[in-house]
Deep mutational scan, measured.
Amino acid sequence: LVRYRTISKIPQITLNFVDLKGDPFLASPTSDREIIAPKIKERTHNVTEKVTQVLSLGADVLPEYKLQAPRIHRWTILHYSPFKAVWDWLILLLVIYTAVFTPYSAAFLLKETEEGPPATECGYACQPLAVVDLIVDIMFIVDILINFRTTYVNANEEVVSHPGRIAVHYFKGWFLIDMVAAIPFDLLIFGSGSEELIGLLKTARLLRLVRVARKLDRYSEYGAAVLFLLMCTFALIAHWLACIWYAIGNMEQPHMDSRIGWLHNLGDQIGKPYNSSGLGGPSIKDKYVTALYFTFSSLTSVGFGNVSPNTNSEKIFSICVMLIGSLMYASIFGNVSAIIQRLYSGTARYHTQMLRVREFIRFHQIPNPLRQRLEEYFQHAWSYTNGIDMNAVLKGFPECLQADICLHLNRSLLQHCKPFRGATKGCLRALAMKFKTTHAPPGDTLVHAGDLLTALYFISRGSIEILRGDVVVAILGKNDIFGEPLNLYARPGKSNGDVRALTYCDLHKIHR
């Protein structure tokens, strides 16, 4: 019993810090008490220290592992850092350059016999395009090294910054494609005289377009951006097909006994025919423009016929181009109408809503002055909100995010209106959640004399007048207030005048 009563005193000691020596009952000389009392004092002292730490809000209350900052290894790049964003855009520009100039170089340097010394005699450094290609190869190699040090988000939505895990993730992902696209074939085969082989191998750079397509997928929600990307894709495919079309004609031209190829026909049409040795002929500019003209006309199913396939190889390629053109029509131009419709969806919704308003007016036989006010209010409210119901949009977000959005939407009023000066951010967040926005066209009466005042109004834009009878008592403008002081009276009061809008007004109100 003594032991039980001794232990039962522990909660009292913990909360009230009572010393055991003052209790005459606990001072009985028993061996059990002498053993338990020192333990009680020690526990009391420890609990006292913990309570003191909690009340003082000291940093040592938290466990040590929670006080440590997340460790980022040296030379690790955050995937959302500004440097990584700028670097990704730079790589994107280099990939676009590669997609345009690599097929052009591979096709127009394929057994090209233009006048001038061969590239091997001039030297590697004197070729501007080769120098640019070398810079692109170096940048792609540097990009691989950067990807080995860039964080990523795993399946659990955690940012991984450990170098080993980053390397394994990159090896399992895009490393092989990036490595093949970054191989400097110019340096590996330079001086061997195989410019045709170098041009063909350099087309491996186009593998990076797969990554670019995935990154550009984030802009699919913007109709104008999608339309622009589709047109660029169409032009890029036409450019690639033009390079292939020229390569076919250029390879067949020296081996044909009869002059029936499209390059021969082009030379005869523009007065620059090929001679018996295969030299001469149109310039590279004429060849490229004509090839691009043929691919565009074939892809769009126009086909004027002034550039036509004559050999079997050219006919087979033309059939493939027609098939590609039909697929592009289905996948690209078939979506253009939907994209344009999405661009004008706001206008369509406006006309639909206006039609419903006019049908309501016609069905209920609203008189002319009231009908005009109804239409003007709808037009003004639509121009202010673009038909978007803010309350319906915010309803799907958590309250903390709703408060931040409301604070942002009402920031101008909260910053410049005098009653809100000096208020804490928590108070402003709470008030912003209570605001209701209303609009009024010129001549609209917001409050009639004798109406119950259940709200306090803040003028965000425009001006109003307060009338008693036919006498203008006051004219209020931006950041002015009218209405009933909230919670100042037990019952809502009545208006002693009319409140009429002089201009288009936007008002925020808080109800009782």
Rank of each mutant, 00 (worst) to 15 (best):
F228V: 11
L370A: 01
L266Y: 03
I135V: 05
T438I: 11
H79T: 01
F140L: 01
D186T: 13
L266P: 01
S326R: 03
G249L: 01
L187N: 15
S258W: 11
G164C: 09
L129K: 06
I177G: 01
G426C: 04
V302S: 04
S308T: 09
L176A: 11
M433H: 03
T102F: 01
I96H: 01
G116D: 04
V393F: 02
K272V: 01
F304Y: 14
R349S: 10
I244M: 05
G443V: 02
F234W: 08
N312S: 01
A235K: 01
T76N: 01
W382D: 01
A291W: 01
V336Y: 04
S192E: 11
V160K: 01
F420S: 02
K418Q: 06
G271F: 01
S383Q: 10
N275V: 01
M328D: 01
A167G: 04
S161Q: 09
W89N: 01
H162T: 10
G334V: 04
K395V: 10
N335D: 03
S412T: 13
H439E: 05
A99Y: 01
A449H: 12
L110N: 15
V95D: 01
Y350W: 09
F83Q: 05
I141C: 11
N386E: 04
P273K: 04
L343P: 03
I339Q: 04
P70Q: 03
A204G: 10
N391K: 05
A125H: 04
L241Y: 01
S298F: 03
P398A: 01
T290Q: 01
S220M: 09
P118Y: 01
G325T: 01
I135Y: 01
N410E: 02
N275Q: 03
G267E: 01
A213G: 09
E112Q: 05
L207P: 12
P103Y: 01
V289Y: 01
G280E: 01
L413N: 01
L187H: 15
Q253S: 11
P282R: 01
V321Q: 06
W245L: 01
S313V: 14
L78T: 05
Q353E: 10
P254M: 14
S337L: 03
F175S: 01
D404K: 01
P369W: 03
Y344A: 07
T385D: 07
V212D: 04
F304K: 04
I72Q: 14
L401G: 02
I248D: 01
V212S: 04
G271R: 01
S105K: 15
G278D: 01
V100R: 01
F171S: 04
S298P: 01
L266D: 01
E157W: 10
W75G: 07
W382N: 08
A247S: 01
G334C: 03
H380I: 03
